[in-house]
Simulated scan of single mutants.
Amino acid sequence: MEGAAEPASGQEGLFDPCKDIPDSVLEEVGLDPATEEVDIAGVEQPGWKICSWTQSGYYVIVFSGENSLDDAKANASFTGFETLSIGGRPALRFHSASDPDIDRCYVGLDVSLGSIWIAADAKNSQQQEDSMCSIASRYAEALEGALPR
């Protein structure tokens, strides 16, 4: 296609949460498809497909990347690793080492091509009734059936 944007390097074949999670599934889990944001402020991140939706006090973000969860564990930028089971498959919950208040928490699942991370990210560090890790886990459970294996 003439004039079409080329995907950033490393995105070929990745699950695309904005395109591959049906609106009906988003609505089922309580997310509004109309709040969808592609990438990070509309900017592609090399090696990632990213989609987020807005809730009242937080964002739900789905990252699809070429790296495995073992890569995340080996990355000193992440800490607090906790093994979980989401939809009967192994998962890992963690957060950024530079985020001691855990304003963003990730739940990651390995898939055939890389991994998918579901994150809950507090808006402006707003206090929530539940922790960001509880919220991320809840959405990971709810969305698991729509994610590749």
Rank of each mutant, 00 (worst) to 15 (best):
D16L: 01
E82P: 09
I86N: 11
G30I: 00
V43Q: 15
G65S: 10
G65Y: 08
A34E: 10
L26N: 08
V107A: 04
V60Y: 12
K49T: 05
D121M: 07
C18P: 12
C105L: 12
A4S: 06
W53K: 00
D103Q: 08
G10P: 04
W53I: 00
Y59F: 10
Y58V: 04
E144R: 07
R149D: 13
A140C: 09
V111D: 13
P100T: 01
I50N: 13
A119L: 05
I102V: 15
W117L: 11
L143D: 08
N67I: 07
L109R: 01
A140H: 05
P33Q: 05
F15G: 04
G57A: 08
L109H: 11
V38E: 14
W53Q: 01
P17E: 08
M132A: 12
G80F: 14
G3S: 03
W48H: 11
G10I: 02
E12H: 06
S98P: 08
E36P: 02
G88E: 09
V111L: 11
P90Y: 07
A34Y: 10
S68M: 09
P7A: 05
D99A: 00
E66M: 07
A146K: 05
S56F: 06
A34K: 05
R138Q: 04
S64N: 09
A34G: 00
S137C: 00
P7N: 03
K49Q: 14
A146V: 04
I102A: 01
L92T: 13
G47L: 05
Y58H: 14
A136P: 11
L147C: 09
